[in-house]
Structure formats: C-alpha cells, structure tokens
Design a protein around this nucleic acid. Structure first.
Length: 617
DNA sequence: AACGGAATTA
DNA sequence: TAATTCCGTT
C-alpha cells in the first residue's frame, strides 16, 4: 500500500495510511466530524459556526454517540471524544476556540490533505481545486522527523507521482464501516444512513442558496501569499457556482464530484480563484531535496516540473515561475481539451515563463498545495530529558537539511535564537499538503489562531522580484500577531529578520499592511545584515519563497512545538484563543502568507466522499 | 468544561 | 498511529 515510498512523498506515514483516507474503514475522528458537519441533518448536533473552520458541538453526547457508533465503541462519551480532539491540538488539526463551549476550529492549514486532494474548504466553491497533491517532481520535503522511523522512511522519498491516483482509487472504493460487533447503536446507524440519503438533496439545495453569500472570509484566501492589494481587491470573479465541478484533472469518479462541496456557513465560498495548486513545487531532481541547489540545471528541472504541473492542473499562468535566465521548456499539456478557464480567472495560459500576466495580481508562483502536518513532538520527549531530546533533534535535522528547522541547527555555534536562515526551514519541513489555514483567519478575522499562522511568514518572504504588479508585497511582518500571542510566536519573530531586502528595487510596499498596529516597527527591514545578497542567495530566497507558499503556513508549528517542548513546557495555553481579538484588523491585514483557501471546498468534497458513514455496524 | 499525562488497545 | 480509557488538575 501506498507507503510513502510508493507515493513518493516524504510525508509522514500516517498521512498515507489508508485509515486516513476518506473511504477508509477506520475513519478518523476529524474525518467524522467533517462528515457530520457537512450534513445538515446534524445541524442540531454539530455545526459550523463563526469563523472559518470553526464549529460547535451542540450536542456533545450525541456526537459522542455517533462517533462511538461509528467506531463501535459504545462506551464513547464526550469526555473521551474530547480527549481525542485534544490530541488534535498537537497535531494541529484542530484547536479549541477559547471561551466558547464545545467549540473547536479546524486548522485547515495544517490538515493533511494527502488523502483529500480535492478538499477545498472554504474556498470556493467553484473552483475545483482538485489537483493532486502530487508534485510532479517529488517533493522532497519532509518534516523534521521526530522519530527514527520517520527518518528512515524519508530516504525513500522521491518517487513519482502516484499519490493522486492512489487516492482516487481509495476513494472509489468507498468505505463503509461495519463493526463486527454491532453494538447497540444500530438505530443510530440506520438513522444516519437514511439521513444521508436525504441529505444529498438537501445539500444541493443548500449549496445553491449559499452561493450568493460571501462572507468576509472570502476575501482571504487568495493564494499567493502575497498580500498585494490586488489580491484583496480581486473581485470575485467567478461567482458562478460550480459546485459540481469536478475537478479537472482528478479522476474521482464518484459521487464526490457530484456532491460538490457543501459549504458550511463557515466555510463559505471564496470567490477567488485561487489558483490552485501547483503541485509541483518543488524540486524535481533528487538533489534538490533538502538543500538548495543553485545549479541551473536543477533550476531548470524544477521549473520545468512546475510548469508542467501548471499545465496539468490547469493552473493560471500566474502560477508559472519565472526565473531569470532560465528557460523552461514547455510541457505538453495532457488535456488539451478543456478550457479550464473556469477556474482561472485569467487567461488561459501564455507562456510559462513570461512573467506575469497582465493581470499580475499575484504574480508569484504559487505552488503548493498541501501540507502536512509536522510531527508533533511528543510531549513525552520533553520530559524525557531535555538533554536527550536536544541531541536527537539536532541529529535529525542535520540529516535532512543543513539547517534544522528550529534552533537545532544552530548547534554549531551560532546563537540559537536568532537564526536567520530562512532557508533551512523551508527546506525541510514544509511541504505538505494542505491547505487552508488559519492564516486566513488572521487575515480575515484576525482571530485567534495565532500561532500557527503567521509564523511562517517570517522568514523569507520578501524577496519578491519586481514583478509584482503592484509592487508589493510581501513582507510579512513578522510581528504581526498580537503581541500577546504565544511564545511560539516569539520565536518566530526572531527568525524573521531575514527579510527585507530593500535594496533591490524597491520594494516594499507596505509591509504588510496590516501589521497591526504598530507602525513603526512594522517595516520589516531586517536588521541582520542581509543586504548584499549574492546571487545565490537570491535564488535561494526565491526558492524559499516558493516553498513558503507551498507550505506556507505552517511549518513552523512544528518548530513551535518543538520549541515549546524544550523551553517551556508547561504552557502552551495562552496562545491561542481567539477570543481575543477577533476582528480587529481585518481590513488591514494582509495575509502574510496567505495560503489559499481552497481547501475548504476541497474538504467539503472530500467529506462528501467519506460519507458513507455508518453504514455498517 | 477543558487540559493533558499515562497506560492501553487495535 | 490514532485513538480509547482513566483520571487528576485547572
């Protein structure tokens, strides 16, 4: 089965486990939650609420029962279920919305969508973002391995694209779970099943209604990550709902396509066409894996792969990467036929290298798509002895990339804290698969999440070339999160310094507009000395940027966690929450690194697939 | 209510 | 790996 080796990516194994798939019989709790959320029948039991990805369990006991039924654990109760949900905090799949009872929020950013290629949460509905997560070339990325086993597996990483197909197959298979010991829950199951059927109709209707609605969130999620005004402004062009739109490429046959995303209120659609994914992020050549290579050939490969994927997935031209002096051969498009225009707002596609389109809105490449979540470091480890942990971690990181994601890299002698090397982070962990994120939220709502989201940006982002149409953007302010955030953030902040390269031409627009409040500081100018940037570095940065986009959001978390572990253990609490400042910044903020939102719709779709629910027991 | 450690299970 | 089960603490 699809082990990482087969699929080629370096994602953690769990991402590939069949159990993680929608159709799998061993449904995971978050899959289940999503499933319930997508059905309005369960609206009284659990429903989307508030912010993007936020849901409230209206009837904890019922949810627990349903879950228990699904898993054939009659003894299930909210206490247990909630424990499981809490584990998701560490995985970064979910987090608690503080202050609101029974309310949790998905961190779409971190969700692993390996198995949900089509998920598009929130975004839009119309856009099919279905691209497979598979990067054309192989990504190399990996998270920092937390365990030895991971390390080992990583060696196999590169491979060919197959993930998608794998997934499709899986999905096609469908899944119904049946418990052998059908516990007492039959009635529920039956109900569920029945409900399901009804649901379909309802969903559709629902969907239709939703179409018009565009919550504020819709603004976000544009992809690219750069906050450029254009992006924000982007009028939602494609409004036409395309719920059904199957994805262009994806093979998914089934009903999934038909169902289309059901939007939750929370998720609502985003009109923006995010471009979808570019699956190819990274590098095609093996070497590129963990470290950068500035070799032109490599670059070429990389670009080529990227370009190919753009074609493959009908991405907007904007997705093409452009690098100076490197010519990328044009790929042949596999599917000539359809004009994918719909998803893209823009023109079909010019030549790849040509820089950005007139539209230029985002000009940057936006590769990426999914992310995985980083391996949470075990808390256990923390305890285990800091000494051990530290040593081990450092080792791992060293293996992968030159620089460890977190502090570990510093080992050499550099002062740990400051570290500026953006690159390192990128290279490693990030890749992933996912989607959405909280960042958005921040941007959007500025809500809670804090920690996760933002952090990422810090690093390299700024390098934009001049191509940006407006000139903008990028810099993410490292600091922009609320001051109060958590410790994690702080760390991130430190890292940030790498940013701004002012020298070049200009750029800097607003740093992020939004920085939130404090004006002065915002400017990301970085102190460190980044000024003279060698060409190499530039590439590197560029590369980083790309990577960032892909992974965008999250990588850091891993770091966070790690850090957290080392540093402070006990507390992680303060961080989140949202209660705090919600809406404040909205308008201003730009997403530092906006990831795209498409995830939501994808998610929806995926969930649809899952659905199958309880049948069996 | 929520958190999270620890042991256990599949 | 992903919970499940228990349970003490906040």
């Amino acid at each position: 089965m699809k082990t990482p080796g087969e699929t080629g990516f370096a994602f953690p194994e769990w991402a590939y486990k069949p159990e993680s798939s929608p159709g799998s019989r061993q449904i995971q709790l978050w899959h289940f939650i999503l499933e319930l959320l997508r059905k309005q029948e369960y609206n009284d039991v659990i429903a989307w609420q508030g912010d993007y990805g936020e849901f409230v369990i209206k009837d904890p006991d019922e949810v627990a029962r349903l879950w228990g039924a699904r898993k054939c654990k009659p003894q299930m109760n909210y206490d247990k279920l909630s424990r499981a949900l809490r584990y998701y905090y560490n995985k970064r799949i979910l987090h608690k919305t503080k202050g609101k009872r029974f309310t949790y929020k998905f961190n779409f950013n971190k969700l692993v969508l390996v198995n949900y290629p089509f998920i598009d949460m929130g975004s839009g509905r119309g856009v099919p973002q279905s691209a497979p997560p598979v990067p054309t070339g192989g990504t190399h990325f990996r998270f920092p391995p937390s365990t030895p086993s991971e390390v080992l597996s990583s060696s196999e990483e590169l491979r060919s694209p197959g993930v998608f197909s794998t997934v499709a197959r899986r999905m096609a298979r469908g899944s119904v779970s049946d418990c052998s010991d059908g516990t007492s829950t039959n009635s529920e199951l039956e109900e569920a099943a029945a409900a399901d059927e009804r649901a379909v109709g309802a969903d559709r209707a629902f969907r239709g209604l939703l179409a018009p609605r565009l919550p504020h969130e819709s603004l976000f999620r544009f992809y690219g990550g750069h906050p450029n005004p254009a992006g924000l402004a982007r009028p939602a062009p494609r409004v036409h709902p395309d719920p059904l739109s199957p994805f262009p490429v994806s093979p998914l046959p089934g009903p999934g396509g038909l169902l289309g995303p059901t939007l939750s209120p929370a998720l609502s659609m985003t009109p923006t066409p995010h471009l979808a994914y570019t699956p190819s992020p990274s590098l095609s050549s093996p070497m590129m894996g963990s470290h950068f290579s500035f070799n032109p050939e490599d670059m070429k490969h990389y670009l080529q792969a990227h370009t190919q994927s753009v074609y493959n997935y009908h991405l907007s031209p904007r997705a093409f990467l452009h690098y100076p002096n490197i010519v990328v051969p044009q790929p042949h498009r596999p599917t000539p036929e359809k004009p994918a225009t719909h998803h893209l707002q823009g023109p079909p596609m010019p030549h790849p290298l040509s820089q950005q389109p007139g539209g230029g809105e985002d000009g940057h490449p936006s590769p990426f798509k999914f992310k995985l979540q980083p391996p949470p470091l075990g808390r256990k480890q923390r305890e285990a002895g800091s000494s051990l942990a530290s040593s081990s971690s450092s080792n791992h990181s060293s293996l992968f990339t030159g620089s460890g994601p977190t502090t570990g890299s510093a080992a050499g002698g550099a002062p740990p804290k400051i570290k500026v090397e953006p690159v390192s982070d990128l290279s490693e962990e990030d890749v992933e698969v996912t989607d959405i994120s909280e960042e958005d939220e921040l941007n959007q709502n500025s809500e809670d999440e804090e920690g996760d989201l933002f952090l990422p940006l810090s690093r390299s982002r700024h390098f934009h070339l001049n191509n940006r149409s407006s000139g903008s953007p990028s810099a993410p302010p490292p600091t922009h999160m609320n001051p109060e955030d958590d410790p994690d953030d702080d760390e991130e902040v430190f890292k940030t310094p790498a940013t701004p390269p002012p020298g070049s031409g200009g750029g800097l627009p607003f740093p992020l507009i939004g920085l939130k409040t404090e004006p002065g500081q915002a400017a990301p100018v970085s102190p460190g000395g980044t000024r003279c940037i060698p060409l190499k570095l530039r590439f590197k940065r560029r590369w980083s940027e790309d990577q960032r986009m892909e992974a965008d959001g999250e990588r850091e978390e891993a770091e966070d966690k790690k850090v957290r572990g080392e540093g402070e253990e006990g507390k992680r609490e303060g961080e989140e929450d949202n209660g705090g400042g919600r809406g404040v910044i909205l308008g201003l903020m730009l997403p530092p690194a906006p990831t795209q939102r498409r995830a939501s719709s994808e998610l929806q779709r995926a969930t649809a697939q899952l659905s199958l629910e309880n049948a069996g027991c």
